[in-house]
Amino acid sequence: MRVLIVDDHPVVRSGMRTLLAASPCIEIVGEAATGREALGLVETTSPDVVLTDLRLGSGLDGVGVTRAVRAAHDDVAVLIITTFDHDADIVRAVEAGAAGYLLKDALPEEIVAAIRAAAVGETVLSAQLTERVVETMRAGQRQLSDREREVLVLVAEGLSNDEIAKALFISRATVKTHLGHLFGKLGADSRTAAVATARRLGLLD
């Protein structure tokens, strides 16, 4: 299996190369530090699988790489490997056509198995992540308005309703209304639960 490694950190690329080189069934055909470089290497190295980080600094991120590779080469699988475990990121990757989504703390044998599965056209997503993706994609009602997002950010910073009202130049009653909408969209029954759910869904940094 021909694999192209994409990560903007040289140390990570080196570690991944060492890990994969131990597998006799994998040939590393190239490494890229940026999304644009990755797309060029796909054309010249003809990989079976592109193993890319989600965040690649400036320019194309891992989702952008996935979308571009899949549009030009539907026979090349793309695996996202990252430290970010946000539902919104997972959904973006799946919608772009990624064959799977792995976390960087996965065991070496899990990464090799994922590459093998992706190379033969299988989807690589744990049952837990699959459930979360389905839940998030169905939750269109969770899309927050700009004002609701502003209120949510201030709640996450620990501001009271009165402080939020003052910061946004709205009434305390309006803050309570926005909070009610937030709780409903996020399925939360408290400020703490709303913030926790929003972080899990990638709605808050």
Score class of each variant (00 low, 15 high):
Val29Thr: 10
Val50Ala: 00
Arg132Phe: 04
Thr82Ser: 07
Val42Asp: 11
Val78Leu: 07
Arg67Glu: 10
Arg55Cys: 11
Thr45Met: 12
Glu27Lys: 03
Ala93Gln: 08
Glu131Pro: 00
Ala99Val: 00
Gly59Tyr: 09
Ala71Gln: 14
Pro108Leu: 05
Asp85Pro: 02
Thr44Glu: 12
Thr52Val: 02
Leu51His: 10
Gly40Lys: 10
Gly35Glu: 00
Val29Ala: 06
Ala33Thr: 08
Ala32Lys: 04
Ala21Met: 12
Val120Arg: 15
Thr52Gly: 03
Ala93Tyr: 07
Asp61Val: 09
Asp87Ile: 01
Val29Arg: 00
Phe84Pro: 07
Ala113Thr: 10
Ala96Tyr: 01
Arg55Tyr: 14
Ile115Gly: 15
Ala117Glu: 15
Thr123Tyr: 11
Arg36Lys: 14
Val50Gly: 01
Val91Asn: 05
Val29Leu: 08
Asp48Ile: 08
Pro108Asn: 02
Gly57Glu: 09
Val29Gly: 03
Glu37Phe: 00
Ser23His: 11
Gly64His: 07
Leu56Asn: 13
Ala106Ser: 11
Asp48Ser: 09
Leu41Val: 06
Arg36Tyr: 12
Ala96Trp: 06
Gly35Ser: 01
Leu54Phe: 08
Arg55Phe: 13
Ala22Lys: 13
Leu56Lys: 05
Glu27Thr: 07
Ala117Pro: 01
Leu51Met: 08
Glu95Ile: 07
Ala117His: 12
Leu79Ala: 01
Glu131His: 12
Ala32His: 03
Thr66Ala: 02
Thr66Glu: 01
Glu37Gly: 00
Glu95Val: 09
Glu43Pro: 11
Asp74His: 13
Thr83Ala: 15
Gly30Pro: 04
Pro108Gly: 06
Gly62Asp: 05
Ile90Arg: 13
Asp61Gly: 05
Thr44Gly: 05
Val94Ile: 13
Gly57Arg: 02
Arg70Val: 14
Arg55Pro: 05
Thr66Tyr: 04
Ser58Cys: 05
Asp48Gly: 12
Glu95Lys: 13
Thr83Gly: 14
Val50Pro: 01
Arg116Gln: 15
Ala72Asp: 08
Leu103Phe: 11
Val120Ile: 14
Asp48Glu: 12
Ala98Trp: 03
Leu54Asn: 06
Thr44Lys: 09
Thr82Arg: 07
Val112Gln: 10
Leu20Cys: 01
Ala127Glu: 15
Ala88Val: 12
Ala106Gln: 02
Leu103Ser: 03
Val49His: 06
Ala118Met: 12
Val76Met: 04
Leu56Thr: 12
Glu37Gln: 15
Arg70Gln: 08
Val42Asn: 09
Thr45Cys: 15
Val76Leu: 05
Ala118Ile: 12
Ile115Ser: 11
Asp53Trp: 04
Gly62Ser: 05
Val124Thr: 12
Glu37Asn: 08
Thr44Met: 06
Val42Lys: 00
Leu39Glu: 02
Val120Ser: 13
Pro108Asp: 08
Ala127Cys: 03
Gly59Gln: 10
Ala127Gln: 14
Ile26Leu: 13
Ile80Pro: 04
Arg92Gly: 04
Val63Gln: 02
Ala33Gly: 11
Phe84Trp: 10
Ala127Lys: 10
Glu27Val: 02
Val124Met: 12
Ala71Tyr: 01
Ile111Phe: 03
Asp85Val: 02
Ala22Ser: 13
Ala117Trp: 06
Glu95Tyr: 04
Leu79Val: 04
Asp53Ser: 03
